Simulated assay, not measured.
Amino acid sequence: MSLETMDKIAVTAPEVEAESEDQILARVKAKHRKSKLRVWGLRAALIVLWLGSWELVASLWIDPFFYSKPSLILDRLVEWFTEGTQFGSIWLQIFTTVQEAVLGFVIGTVAGVVLGTLLGRSRYWADVLAPFIKALNAVPRIVLASLFIIWFGLGLSSKVATVVVLVFFAVFFNAFTGAREVDGNVINNARILGASKRQILGSIVLPSATTWILSSLHTAFGFALIGAVVGEYAGASKGLGLLISNAQGTFDAAGIYAGMIIITVVALMAEWLIGVAENRLLKWRPSQAQSGHGV
Rank of each mutant, 00 (worst) to 15 (best):
T117D: 04
L118N: 04
L119C: 05
L119P: 00
R121I: 06
S122L: 12
R123L: 13
R123P: 10
R123S: 14
Y124K: 10
Y124A: 14
Y124L: 14
W125Q: 08
W125Y: 15
A126G: 11
V128Y: 10
V128M: 10
L129I: 10
L129P: 03
A130E: 15
F132S: 15
F132R: 06
F132I: 13
I133Q: 04
I133D: 06
A135V: 13
A135C: 09
L136H: 10
N137C: 08
A138F: 09
A138H: 07
V139Q: 05
P140W: 08
I142Q: 08
I142V: 15
V143L: 14
A145Q: 03
A145M: 05
L147N: 04
L147T: 02
F148R: 00
F148D: 00
F148V: 02
I150W: 10
I150C: 07
I150K: 09
F152W: 10
L154M: 12
G155D: 09
L156E: 07
L156M: 11
L156P: 03
S157F: 11
S157V: 12
A161V: 05
A161I: 04
T162W: 00
T162A: 07
T162I: 02
V165P: 01
V165F: 05
V167A: 05
F168W: 03
F168K: 00
F168Q: 02
F169V: 03
F169D: 00
V171T: 06
F172N: 01
F172G: 00
F173N: 04
N174Q: 08
N174Y: 02
A175F: 02
A175H: 03
A175R: 00
A175Q: 01
A175S: 14
F176A: 03
G178K: 00
G178L: 02
A179P: 01
A179R: 00
A179S: 05
R180Y: 06
E181T: 14
E181C: 11
V182L: 03
V182P: 00
D183Q: 11
D183H: 11
D183A: 09
G184R: 13
G184P: 12
V186P: 04
I187H: 04
N189C: 10
A190S: 08
A190H: 03
R191N: 10
R191S: 09
R191Q: 12
R191I: 04
L193C: 13
S196A: 05
K197M: 09
I200T: 07
G202C: 09
S203D: 12
I204G: 01
I204Q: 02
L206Q: 04
L206C: 06
P207I: 07
P207A: 06
